[in-house]
């Protein structure tokens, strides 16, 4: 059964589409939240026109199911791409949602001009339109959130790849400067990278530097020991360096047993040990010159 109210709304939308669009654009451009620095006016106009057209088509079908109805599929799709692109451009959630909500005023104004003589019908009409746009606005927020989560997930992935480099300090000596919290996912990546590099370079000593690890709890310590064991199985010794005083305290307080892993306070100290173990040593250039020259 077609509701007379929605048919009136669709009639207004159909007849005054260009007027509503003009009012809406004006509202959007004059709004405090308008971000002229992030989006071009021509793009905004294009998006607005497309959205209004889709809303009109949706209203015309009379399908009340905005969330999942087939009649609104195109609208939802459009909102999804719009929210995603705005999330990437740096719009705040409020700014993104105001795109849909500012349409309300434009439509209400047109409805008032059209039905001002009949307040009761006008109120009914406004409620219908309001409900519709509220749902669409919420949908936008949801999509925006999803877009943001996508951004976060991607950044996490990048961070993971960026923060686990394996560097070669010397022939046969690898260093792994670990930055950030070690969780099981990262440990896996770190371990794989480390073992792969051990195979490639034939390194016999790996230095795990935890200067950049903010906290070491039992779980992190366990993950570190896992990496050490795996490296040992590949025939490489591990040295853990960069243990700050607070971390040393925490490790002892927690009762974590670092086993027979060599630990050093600084990377330099660990490097010296590594050179020693590979039968090399660093000598002062002046000292050497004076002994050989004499």
């Amino acid at each position: 059964m077609p509701k007379p109210a929605s048919s009136k709304l669709s009639e207004v939308l159909l007849r005054y589409e260009s007027d509503i669009l003009a009012t809406w654009m004006q509202l959007q451009l004059s709004a405090v939240k308008h971000r002229g620095d992030l989006i071009k006016n021509s793009d905004l106009r294009e998006q607005s026109a497309r959205f209004l057209e889709l809303v009109r088509e949706g209203v015309q079908t009379g399908d009340p199911n905005v969330q999942s109805g087939a009649a609104w599929a195109a609208t939802r799709e459009m909102l999804e791409s719009l929210s995603r692109s705005r999330a990437k451009l740096g719009f705040t959630p409020a700014e993104t949602a105001s795109f849909v909500y500012s349409l309300k005023a434009a439509i209400f104004e047109r409805l008032r001009e059209e039905m001002g003589s009949n307040p009761q019908a006008l109120v009914t009409e406004i409620i219908t339109a309001s409900e519709l746009l509220d749902v669409l606005g919420l949908l936008t927020m949801e999509m925006y959130q999803k877009g943001r989560e996508g951004v976060i997930a991607r950044q996490q992935q990048e961070l993971m790849e960026l923060s686990t480099p394996v560097v070669m300090l010397w022939d046969g000596v690898l260093a792994l400067p670990l930055i950030g919290t070690l969780d099981s996912g990262r440990t896996q990546v770190v371990m794989e990278n480390l073992l792969q590099r051990i195979v490639e370079t034939g390194a016999s000593i790996a230095i795990l530097d935890i200067t950049g690890v903010p906290t070491v709890d039992t779980l992190v310590a366990q993950h570190l020991l896992k990496a050490v064991s795996a490296a040992r199985l590949m025939g490489a010794d591990c040295i853990i360096s960069g243990i700050r005083p607070q971390i040393a305290q925490t490790i002892v307080h927690l009762g974590v047993d670092l086993g027979n892993v060599t630990t050093k306070a600084t990377l330099a100290e660990a490097f010296r040990v590594a050179l020693n173990r590979t039968s090399r040593r660093i000598v002062d250039a002046d000292f050497q010159a004076s002994t050989t020259g004499a």
Binding site: Q188, M191, E192, L195, Q196, I198, V199, K226, S229, A230, A231, L233, M234
Partner: peptide
């Protein structure tokens, strides 16, 4: 490497 990780 894969074997070492598995064993650990």
């Amino acid at each position: 490497p894969a074997v070492a990780i598995t064993l650990v």
